[in-house]
């Protein structure tokens, strides 16, 4: 837990140090920036960033934006959604607290992801005030997400560790590649949900920190520079690179999450609103958890 507390405090430091008087990039430090560019033995982060940003990032994101939903359409047409009875008993799955936390995260993601895309394809939107507004919204919703990311991490942590079921689940891709209704090995959360949990929380924290670094730009936290051995400008380059790479994972899994909740499992989205899952849905999609609940006499 210490580590996360540290990350959180570090991000607060980022905010307070943002207005440090001495520039870490220009003025006297400019020498370091100029000499550090493409130096022998350095990571050549300037060139790496330029090459990836100029040729790959936007293209790969575009492919994801078009390709992932296209795969969903095909899946829906050829394999169809999983349909479970909504008339049976219901199993209480999500506490009120977890639902509130989830809803705050959900709203912030619904703002973060489109605004991120708009910035990335800023030229298609003509840049200027509209894209700046999207950029500000991106920053503002980060605050909401930043407040709940650690609570979200903590409330679900105990259910998210790797289990033997997860390997089996992954081998059959959760049963989503077949039309037959068979019990799928999974506890309260399946391997897919667990992957998304780790991506959204740990990946999310990386997104917050790298985003904050780029937002504040010229701040001075000597500790980070000493720890990473990076100059300020290289720290920003690493932030931009990580933000794009980790962001891609977050975006893909976010799309999958939406598809599962809204389309692939009929009515699944209700469980995070009411807190209750359909008994039949649990019986098939979370069979190990179902057996456990039965044994405990909770159903």
């Amino acid at each position: 837990m210490k580590k996360y507390l540290f990350l959180f405090i570090a991000s607060l430091f980022l905010a307070s140090a943002a207005f440090a008087a001495d520039s870490q990039i220009w003025d006297a430090m400019r020498v370091q920036n100029i000499l550090g560019y493409g130096q022998e033995g350095s990571y050549k982060l300037g060139q790496l960033f330029t090459m990836l940003q100029a040729n790959y990032f936007a293209q790969v994101y575009l492919a994801v934006l078009v390709g992932v939903p296209a795969i969903f359409v095909l899946h829906y047409l050829f394999l169809g959604p999983k349909v479970f009875s909504h008339d049976g008993k219901k199993i209480y799955t999500f506490s009120l607290l977890s639902r509130i936390i989830h809803q705050i995260a959900a709203i912030s993601f619904i703002v973060l992801i489109p605004t991120g895309f708009i910035m990335m394809f800023g030229s298609s939107f003509g840049g200027g005030s509209f894209v700046i507004m999207m950029k500000d919204l991106h920053g503002l919703s980060t605050i909401a997400f930043g407040i709940i990311v650690i609570p979200m991490f903590l409330i679900w942590l105990k259910d998210m560790f790797l289990h033997w079921d997860d390997i089996k689940w992954l081998m059959i891709v959760g049963g989503y590649l077949s039309k037959t209704k068979k019990p799928v090995p999974a506890g309260k959360f399946n391997a897919g949900q667990k992957t998304w949990y780790w991506m959204a929380t740990l990946g999310g924290m990386i997104m917050i920190l790298t985003g904050a670094a780029m937002y504040f730009l010229d701040f001075n936290i000597a500790m980070i520079n000493t720890m990473t051995g990076l100059s300020q400008i290289d720290l920003l380059r690493v932030s931009a690179l990580l933000h794009a790479v980790v962001g891609l994972g977050v975006v893909i899994l976010f799309f999958v999450h939406i598809y599962m909740a809204v389309f692939a499992i009929k009515g699944a989205i209700n469980s995070i609103i009411t807190g209750y899952k359909e008994e039949e849905e649990v019986e098939y999609l979370h069979s190990s958890w179902y057996k456990k609940l039965k044994k405990q006499g909770k159903i």
């Binding site: 920036n33 560019y37 300037g46 940003q53 800023g122 700046i132 730009l217």
Partner: peptide, 22 residues
């Protein structure tokens, strides 16, 4: 064009001379 620029800082990361400023 400053009316189009969104102040994202990417040009600074790409520049070998630390020229772009904000």
């Amino acid at each position: 064009d400053k009316d189009i620029c969104i102040g994202c800082g990417y040009c600074l990361y790409a520049c070998p001379f630390g020229a772009p400023q904000f």
